[in-house]
């Protein structure tokens, strides 16, 4: 009797698994479409929208590289992703350390401000910031985007880091204090190393957000020579709207870096994203 039940249960699980697999397959069709279409010639796409290309072609990528300075755009994206991330994680961990481990006036306020800050759309900050950076003659310069990104993503990062911070035992830190450890030392020799995996998670998730950001990069880096991949793709959409394979090639190139990091760092991704919500 029992074995029959177990077998039925296992079969049930396999059935469910198959069902979920089918669902996921359908769910990912748009992504298959994107990649497959990017290898279809424009002429073929006119009559063959749905199936595998009869003739795999790299012409879209060639056209893409010819029409746009893709390496430059890649570098731009890299610049506005990598440079801010270090500051963000460093400043963020410092702040999370303060909020998570110290009692001080205003701590409650800061802790409670994190979520509201996350809910403010960037479009609200857009025009005043543009005015500010115009005055400083910093529009169309990477510095403006870097500074803005640091501030913009900090709340999201803080949200993640404060929950990671609670995993470090206070008594352990107090013991270190008794041993004569200064706070600055504590931060660099205890907190940061202990949080290393959490910081990797935060860095990866933060990098994903920054790489994918459009509005700020769009408004502050209009110069063709400085555009990021995402912004470049958006402007491509208007000019080459009818050339779907070309657009798909652009979409693929823009997303491949993030997908690669995701594939190799899924553990970090999941850990980072979950930290924000599961306390």
């Amino acid at each position: 009797m029992r074995t029959g039940y177990k077998r039925r249960q296992r079969m049930g699980k396999w059935l469910l698994s198959a069902g979920v697999a089918v669902f996921i397959f359908v769910d990912l069709i748009p992504i298959f479409f994107t990649v497959i279409t990017s290898f279809k010639s424009r002429d073929e796409y006119v009559y063959n929208v749905f199936s595998i290309p009869e003739r795999w072609s790299l012409e879209n990528y060639a056209n893409l590289f010819e029409a746009y300075d893709v390496p430059q755009m890649f570098l731009s994206s890299l610049t506005v992703t990598v440079i801010p991330i270090f500051f963000i994680v460093y400043f963020g961990t410092m702040a999370a350390f303060a909020i998570g481990k110290f009692e001080f006036k205003g701590r409650r306020i800061f802790a409670n401000m994190i979520f509201p800050l996350m809910s403010i759309p960037s479009v609200v900050m857009l025009f005043p910031l543009f005015r500010l950076f115009s005055k400083l003659n910093m529009t169309n310069k990477f510095g403006s985007v870097i500074v803005i990104y640091i501030g913009l993503i900090l709340p999201f990062i803080l949200n993640m880091l404060t929950s990671f911070m609670s995993s470090i035992s206070s008594s352990y830190l107090e013991a270190a204090m008794i041993d004569g450890c200064g706070f600055w030392q504590m931060f660099h020799r205890i907190i940061l190393p202990l949080l290393a995996p959490a910081l990797s998670a935060t860095t990866i998730v933060g990098a994903m957000w920054l790489w994918n950001e459009m509005l700020i990069a769009f408004i502050f880096l209009q110069d063709e020579a400085k555009r990021t991949l995402v912004v470049g793709l958006t402007s491509m959409q208007g000019l080459f709207q009818l050339d779907v394979p070309l657009l798909m090639a652009g979409a693929t190139i823009t997303t491949v870096p993030v997908i690669l990091i995701f594939v190799f760092g899924q553990k970090w991704f999941i850990r980072g994203l979950t930290a924000g919500g599961v306390k």
Binding site: I24, D27, L28, P30, I31, F33, T34, M208, W211, N212, E213, M214, V230, L233, T234, Q237, L247, M248, G250, A251, T254, T255, V258, I259, F262, Q266, F269, I270
Partner: peptide
């Protein structure tokens, strides 16, 4: 992991696709 893949895409890229 597979269910998360759409989340990884930039919203702008998703919209274009």
């Amino acid at each position: 992991v597979l269910l998360l893949v759409p989340y990884i895409f930039s919203i702008a890229v998703t919209g274009i696709i």
